[in-house]
Design a protein around this nucleic acid. Structure first.
Lengths: 229, 229
DNA sequence: CTCTGTGAACCACTTCACAGCA
DNA sequence: TGCTGTGAAGTGGTTCACAGAG
């Protein structure tokens, strides 16, 4: 088994090394905070209090402070947070202070749509390639110019391009083997769009975006959550 | 075999009507259970215990029993659950015992990809139409034949087709007004793909699939979750 | 004075463990 | 016997409330 060894940092310096357990919920909120802060920055706001953030963006002030406290002391008592400062810190915490290389496996409707998703560029995510096995697709390009290459190039691509994240948008029945291949190639973060949750080793982070579950949850709400007039 | 349970109502109200609070986490798991049960059913399995389900699909047995217990007593002590029976119950609980009408607003890459997503048909979700405002798109069809109509038809469509769920895949800046329009048209369940969370009235269920948050969470993991050898 | 950072209280979800039924 | 359904215990995340910095 893998044994997690907690390496003692030289005394008590800031944790950037993921020492303290930070919950997934917290990390998801960090993205939200960053978005809010960027909006404030764009509006020319210089400082903001946790209360100000909370009321403006429908959040909880104490939670903002707690979430940030995991990573250091970014605020000034009596003042709040310097917007530009906090933005920089959040980007660094989220690892967005560099370009993130993404490969999308499966050049079907969804894969192609994702490759052309405009939100990526501006957020520092760089879709390096689409991979597929279909002869007629390989060699083509997505509308925005992402090249489609053969899936067998995965290993080479990951190594040469230092791929950070693999997106899996293949038919359900191919999901597990695709994930296995991605893991074997050395990718440590995977976003899976197939229903179900493929197995991955402990050192790999897998996120599932399960459309079926989402739709069925909405259906549940319609069937149960409500009293018809 | 046929286990006609449940019962005439005793004096006081039973659930089914959303009386007991059922958490979102529970409802998401119901979808998972249904998927597992359908797989077992397809394999010809007749009965399954919570333990069997748990070990086979990487779940927790007590949690399965607790989740199901919110909706009735579907199991047989000493035996487990009849697969066909449980499947029927789960479908009914999730509101999948009828066709769910879906409209997708925004016939961009993502909207078109979603409209053609194969998983829908087999799950009873019926994508009735795509809506868009672009002249050149209106009147066209998605690859699988979903018609693209003008967004101004929303009200009529919702009323005539009894739309259950609206999917919002429009540019970020149009998300809030789109959601407002959908709500005004009388739709009570919305799946939003734009970043951020539009405001909706309390009686409307909104689910956000925020790609940005998801990618940034993966980025966070890469930046913090790991020690490079 | 204002607002952060944080222990403590609170609440929600999960897991345990067992009584009791088939 | 083997299993469900469920109170009780455990865990983790959120909110409160306040000491103390600026």
């Amino acid at each position: 088994m893998d044994c997690v060894l907690i390496v003692p940092v030289t005394e008590h310096e800031r944790d950037r090394t993921g020492s303290d357990h930070v919950s997934e919920l917290t990390t998801a909120r960090l993205s939200v905070y960053l978005r809010c802060i960027e909006s404030l920055d764009a509006s020319g706001v210089n400082t903001i209090s946790s209360q100000g953030l909370a009321s403006q963006f429908q959040l909880n002030a104490a939670q903002i402070r707690k979430d940030l406290a995991h990573f250091g002391e970014f605020g000034i008592r009596g003042v709040g947070y310097y917007v530009k400062d906090l933005k920089r810190h959040l980007k660094e915490i989220l690892g967005l202070d560099r370009s993130i290389k993404v490969v999308i496996i499966g050049a079907g409707n969804l894969g192609l749509a994702l490759a052309d998703y405009a939100g990526f560029r501006q957020d520092g995510f760089d879709v390096v390639a689409l991979l597929d096995t279909a002869r007629e697709k390989v060699g083509q390009y997505s509308r925005s110019g992402v090249p489609i290459r053969h899936a067998r190039d995965l290993d080479r691509l990951v190594e040469r391009e230092k791929i950070d994240i693999a997106v899996v948008s293949v038919p359900t029945e191919a999901a597990q083997e695709t994930v296995d291949g991605v893991v074997a190639a050395g990718v440590r973060a995977i976003l899976n769009f197939s229903p179900g949750s493929p197995r991955v080793p402990a050192h790999v982070k897998l996120k599932n975006m399960d459309l079926t579950i989402t739709f069925e949850s909405l259906s549940f709400f319609l069937a149960n959550g409500h009293v018809d007039p």
